[in-house]
């Protein structure tokens, strides 16, 4: 522990603060300066007049959002979808990483790792097309199997109750492999002598995984989970847009799709900025709260 005085501390650790300067400078210039543009959310932006001369409208856009008859639905859908994405999508790469970690055949491991990353690079346009083909009510393979088993065809993509499952499953398919990378990096940081001592103590593979590997990557897990909460009102526009339709609006319409349809394309920039601000505010609040809770419960937190 250092002295309580600030100045001596700063001088003694001057290098640490010097190291921070480039990063902070970067953030100030490239992130905070443009943030001044958030004022657009409080104006009626006219491209010709420019930001400064556009008319001030205060909370108008936010009120428009909250008073929209769809607001509670899109809020609910966004939160629920994120919840599902976290409950199912978050553990998937962890489990896969742990599983792969146990594979000892090096060549097999290398090959499979490369294969698992492939869907991450394939655009949603292609993957959504494949999903739609598989789930087609008339020619899809899933319904084909159902029919041979004696069941009627189900138009999955037209049924709101299946929508979340489809979205979350497709996303796992695309991202589970890529998501393991960060956990591998974390696993590399675990002291191997821990494993050796455990072997000597007679611990089996499952016990080693549970008592060494998992705790070893727990900091990473917690941090990633906390950061995910910051994006709780983001659900992945492209995927949802490609797979949803009026029949599934009830569960599938989220913030991003709603604002897109309400005419972002036609240049309702101010409104879009206001909605973005709202989403960011909710996410930020959530991170702060979750961070405190996490620090108390697990000792691990972002700050």
């Amino acid at each position: 522990m250092g002295r309580s005085g600030n100045l001596p501390y700063l001088i003694r650790n001057k290098w640490l603060y010097i190291f921070l300067i480039p990063g902070i400078l970067y953030l100030l210039v490239f992130k905070y300066l443009p943030m001044a543009g958030l004022v657009i959310a409080f104006k009626d932006l006219s491209l010709t007049k420019g930001i400064v001369d556009s008319e001030w409208v205060g909370w108008y856009h936010f009120e428009t959002l909250f008073q929209s008859s769809n607001f509670y639905r899109i809020l609910k859908n966004s939160l629920l979808l994120s919840f599902y994405q976290i409950v199912w999508g978050f553990p998937a790469p962890i489990i896969l990483a742990l599983t792969l970690n146990e594979i000892r055949h090096m060549f097999f491991k290398r090959i499979t790792q490369t294969i698992l990353y492939l869907p991450h690079f394939i655009s949603w346009v292609v993957l959504a097309g494949i999903v739609m083909s598989f789930l087609s009510p008339s020619t899809g393979i899933v319904n084909h199997v159902l029919n041979t088993m004696g069941f009627e065809s189900v138009p999955f993509l037209l049924k709101p109750e299946y929508f979340r499952t489809i979205i979350v499953s497709a996303e796992i398919w695309k991202e589970v492999g890529w998501g393991t990378i960060i956990y591998f990096a974390a696993m590399s940081g675990i002291d191997p002598t821990l494993y050796e001592s455990a072997t000597i103590d007679g611990a089996g593979r499952m016990r080693k995984m549970w008592h060494i590997t998992l705790p070893g990557i727990s900091a990473t897990i917690v941090i990633l989970l906390l950061l995910k909460l910051g994006n709780i009102l983001e659900n992945g526009f492209e995927q949802i847009y490609l797979l949803y339709n009026p029949m599934t609006y009830a569960t599938g319409d989220v913030f991003e799709t709603y604002t897109y349809r309400i005419g972002l394309q036609q240049g309702r920039i101010s409104y879009g900025t206001a909605v973005g601000m709202f989403k960011a505010l909710v996410g930020f609040t959530l991170i702060i709260m979750a961070n405190s809770v996490s620090r108390k419960l697990s000792g691990k937190s972002i700050w």
Binding site: S136, S138, T139, L157, P246, M247
Partner: peptide, 9 residues
């Protein structure tokens, strides 16, 4: 069943 069931998609 005369209209292609995939039409809405």
């Amino acid at each position: 069943g005369i209209l292609d069931p995939d039409s809405p998609l």
